[in-house]
Write a protein that binds this DNA or RNA. Sequence first.
DNA 1: TTTTCTAATCTCATATAATGAGATATATAT
DNA 2: ATATATATCTCATTATATGAGATTAGAAAA
Lengths: 244, 244
Amino acid sequence: MATPLNGTILKAFQILRLASFERPDISAQRVQSELGMNFATAHRFLVTLEEAGALISIRRGVYRLGPSVGKMGRLAESTTPHLEAIQPFLDALRARLNESVMLCRFSRAGPTCVAVALAERPITVAIRIGTTLNFLTSAQGRLWLASLEPWERDELLAGESHLVDRPGLEADLAAIRRDGVAQNYGDAEPDIAAVAAPIRNAQGDLLLTVAVFGPKTRFTSDFISMAAESVKRVAGDVEISLTR
Amino acid sequence: MATPLNGTILKAFQILRLASFERPDISAQRVQSELGMNFATAHRFLVTLEEAGALISIRRGVYRLGPSVGKMGRLAESTTPHLEAIQPFLDALRARLNESVMLCRFSRAGPTCVAVALAERPITVAIRIGTTLNFLTSAQGRLWLASLEPWERDELLAGESHLVDRPGLEADLAAIRRDGVAQNYGDAEPDIAAVAAPIRNAQGDLLLTVAVFGPKTRFTSDFISMAAESVKRVAGDVEISLTR
DNA sequence: TTTTCTAATCTCATATAATGAGATATATAT
DNA sequence: ATATATATCTCATTATATGAGATTAGAAAA
């Protein structure tokens, strides 16, 4: 890629990335010391970012991410691309495993089904596009939880505190991160099993989940092993195709 | 404000704001025609924004907001400032109305209580900081719904479709936008009433809600009228103090 | 209240980075 | 294979960003 990049813009985003949950405040002093920028330049960046709506001034010299960023973030999460291009991968996975396959994106209410390849068998499990799964009880939901920072997780699960076995969940999420795959065996629906893998972008952010699902009786341990291998392979193939 | 602003950064955010739910794709051609920018410059901005993580390339020449923006947006929504400065306003409102007062911020699960001033009466209603209210049934929730775009509202309410009387809700939200205040009278909790008003930033984005709440029996129509006036006044005062 | 100090904000000459015209590369349609 | 449209790249010129130093604002100390 030989197109020259605008250094000023890159610096602006470096500054925005200084904000964290633990330390949301951004000041010119902090920009100076953490990014090695001249103080007056840092101040000008902050004032500009305020004017652009990205930051708000909470007191003289101190800024935080503003609501416009929140709005833009919600839009980003609602407009995940590439669905048309991914359908052939879902179809191939369905053919290989002879079970239904679905693709989910993130939503605040839980992983939301955005594409499906239904098994071509007389008895099968179906799901409607647009269905939102539960974070805690679905394989996809656990993949998302495993990808989030603890504070984000806490926030998402705020309404379900009474349902959460914390040490069990943390152990489960650690295993998911280690294995790169998540399962459920009747947790979300009594007779349904699923095996799900993450699809990430070049920066390592979780974009989507791909999962095979079907009647529990058909998910023998041999099938689950094969399915885990297959969904991970397909997820990897989708990731490669997304970087084109 | 005489600090010069960085025009390059302002342009970058103009570009990002081209993305919408109906039209999430951003191309150099679109930047050229909608913002009057030279094609090569527009292309360079897009490539830079991709490198900065704000955009992802979905195919040659076409970009969308990326997951990093989503992450930043979630952080923005979790780190609302000013709470310490607002407490005296809550205390004054409580003294004036002799009922409890609470401040709520936005969260995906619903308006979340971030500050309280409890009524100094023997019989009162209490709420714990951190409590999340329901979007549909709380006055604060309806204020938030009234401030959102239809697609955002639909997304938030996705899990509650069966509960939503759409024409009734739209009429209610239109009235809330017109009046600048929202009420609930036993909708969220059977014996609790509340009157809530929005606190906005300089750009008009809803930051927080301030509400008075208490036992339904004490919320006579005279009291509700007076409370509506008072919460709106306090909300305005808070807004002025936020611009300092 | 006044004074002092520190950090934030502002100004402007200079340096550097951004711009845009035009060349080149790529993908698609024929 | 060729033609066309659009995306990507290059580089001389121009415009904008930078940073040193001056000024201002606000908080703390006397």
